[in-house]
């Protein structure tokens, strides 16, 4: 009888504490949700996982044509397709994870109102599901690099760190939007539009161009947590082929501001989520 778990139920005032132990106890559920989303994702489609390839490739073709061929925007000396696809690969993971997390609570409302488990599992699993498409797209990227004769260097070992950083930003923002979405479905309309704008600010213009315009621009650019990630992602994959001012220095500077910003977003998202968590089942 000594080990009988005792559950105490009472109104929590303010923030619910982040119970990491409970989260760890239910880690299998995290895995099951991610597994379910993956399984269901390409059910009843003709081309299945090819859609994970087609999306970034189509955007790459359009961007290369519009920004590289027609507008003649600089691309750190990289071939247009390589420059834009590299940005798209990491950006699309961010955007997919963020929008999946934002819709996750509403999408799982039947479960939310009937069973208790740490609610954090739902948006967290959405961010994990996105890895699958990311790795498929990364494979395409490597094939394209081989085609252009670009070899990734040892700096590629930085990739897991970059992915983790991206996940932190996506989860943080996702937690915020997911909580808001529970009450205001407007989130579903705003988000695609917001992500579109954010993407153009992040992957089209190389940082080297921004840096030339002075400190204020640099500072603003540094506030975008994905700015540093995209820059570093390109740098660690394509360093050998880069010419011009795109260099390691810029990458480190951007990451230097990107990491605290990402951590801030994660902490703020978590706080907001924990603040509203107790009301999810009542108002979703």
């Amino acid at each position: 009888m000594l080990n009988t778990p005792v559950t105490i139920i009472q109104p929590s005032d303010g923030w619910r504490s982040l119970d990491l132990r409970e989260l760890w106890d239910r880690r299998e559920l995290l895995y099951f949700f991610a597994w379910r989303d993956l399984k269901v994702r390409y059910k009843q489609t003709l081309f299945g996982v090819l859609w994970a390839v087609a999306g970034p490739l189509a955007s790459m073709v359009v961007f290369t044509f519009v920004f590289d061929k027609m507008a003649g925007l600089p691309s750190d000396g990289l071939p247009g397709p390589i420059f834009y696809l590299s940005g798209l690969v990491i950006w699309r993971y961010f955007a997919n994870a963020l929008s999946a997390a934002s819709n996750s609570l509403v999408g799982n409302q039947t479960i939310l109102t009937k069973v208790y488990f740490p609610r954090l599992i739902i948006p967290l699993s959405s961010c994990i599901t996105g890895f699958a498409d990311f790795f498929v797209a990364l494979g395409v990227m490597l094939v394209l690099m081989a085609y252009y004769g670009i070899l990734p260097g040892i700096a590629m070992l930085l990739l897991p760190f970059l992915l983790l950083l991206t996940m932190a930003s996506a989860l943080g923002a996702g937690l915020f939007f997911a909580s808001l979405n529970v009450k205001y479905r407007d989130v579903g309309y705003i988000l695609p539009f917001l992500l579109q704008l954010w993407m153009f600010c992040t992957i089209i213009v190389p940082y080297s161009e921004v840096a030339q315009r002075g400190g204020a621009w640099r500072f603003v650019y540094g506030l975008n947590p994905m700015g540093g990630v995209v820059e570093a992602f390109r740098w660690c994959l394509l360093r050998g082929a880069m010419t011009g001012p795109g260099n390691a220095n810029a990458t480190w500077i951007l990451l230097g501001t990107g990491v605290p910003v990402a951590l801030f977003i994660l902490a703020a998202g978590l706080l907001y989520f924990k603040r509203l968590e107790k009301m999810f089942a009542d108002i979703v």
Partner: peptide, 20 residues
């Protein structure tokens, strides 16, 4: 729903002893 922790009570307190 309160006893299963799906939703929180506005006031009061409950204790459950054992795996729920």
């Amino acid at each position: 729903k309160i006893l299963t922790r799906v939703t929180e009570p506005t006031v009061g307190r409950a204790e459950l002893r054992g795996r729920v």
